[in-house]
Amino acid sequence: MITHADLHTHTKASDGTCDPAENVRLAKEAGLAAVAITDHDTVAGVPAARKAAEELGIEVIPGIEVSSVGRGQDIHVLGYFVPYEDEAFQERLVSLRETRHERNQLLIARLQELGIPITLENVYRRKQGTDKNIGRPHIAEELIELGVVASIDEAFAKYLGKEGAAYVNPPRITPQQAITLIKDAGGAAVLAHPGLYDADDLVEELIAFGLDGIEVNHPDNDPDQRARYTAWANEHGLVITGGSDFHGWRGEEPFHAMLGTHTAPMEAVEKLREIAVGRKAQK
Rank of each mutant, 00 (worst) to 15 (best):
R103F: 04
L111D: 08
I134G: 07
P137T: 10
L111N: 01
R92S: 11
E102G: 08
R103C: 07
Q128E: 14
G115L: 06
F89Q: 04
P137V: 05
V148Y: 03
L120N: 00
T99Y: 05
N122L: 08
Y124M: 12
E91Y: 07
E91S: 13
I139L: 03
I139S: 02
Y84M: 06
Y84D: 07
Q105F: 06
H138A: 05
G129Q: 01
R136M: 03
R125P: 09
L93R: 15
E91H: 12
E142S: 00
I139G: 01
Y124P: 01
P117A: 09
Y124C: 05
V123P: 01
I118A: 10
R103I: 03
F89Y: 03
R103A: 03
D86E: 14
I152K: 10
V94E: 06
T99I: 13
L114R: 04
E113S: 15
V148A: 14
T119F: 08
L96H: 06
Q105N: 13
N122D: 15
Q90N: 15
E102Y: 05
E154Y: 02
P117Y: 15
I144S: 07
A140N: 01
D153W: 02
H101N: 12
L107I: 11
G135P: 09
R126D: 03
T130C: 12
L143I: 00
T130F: 14
L106E: 04
R92M: 13
I152G: 05
N104A: 15
R126I: 01
L120M: 14
L146E: 11
T99Q: 13
E98M: 10
R125A: 14
A140L: 02
A109F: 13
G129C: 03
I134W: 05
G147Q: 09
K132N: 09
Q105Y: 04
Q112T: 09
L96Y: 03
N122Y: 09
G147R: 03
N104D: 14
G147D: 00
I152D: 01
H138C: 07
R97P: 02
E154Q: 06
H101Q: 13
R100Y: 04
D86S: 09
Q128H: 14
I134F: 11
G135N: 10
R97C: 04
S151R: 11
E142A: 03
D153V: 11
F89N: 05
L107F: 08
E91Q: 10
L106Y: 03
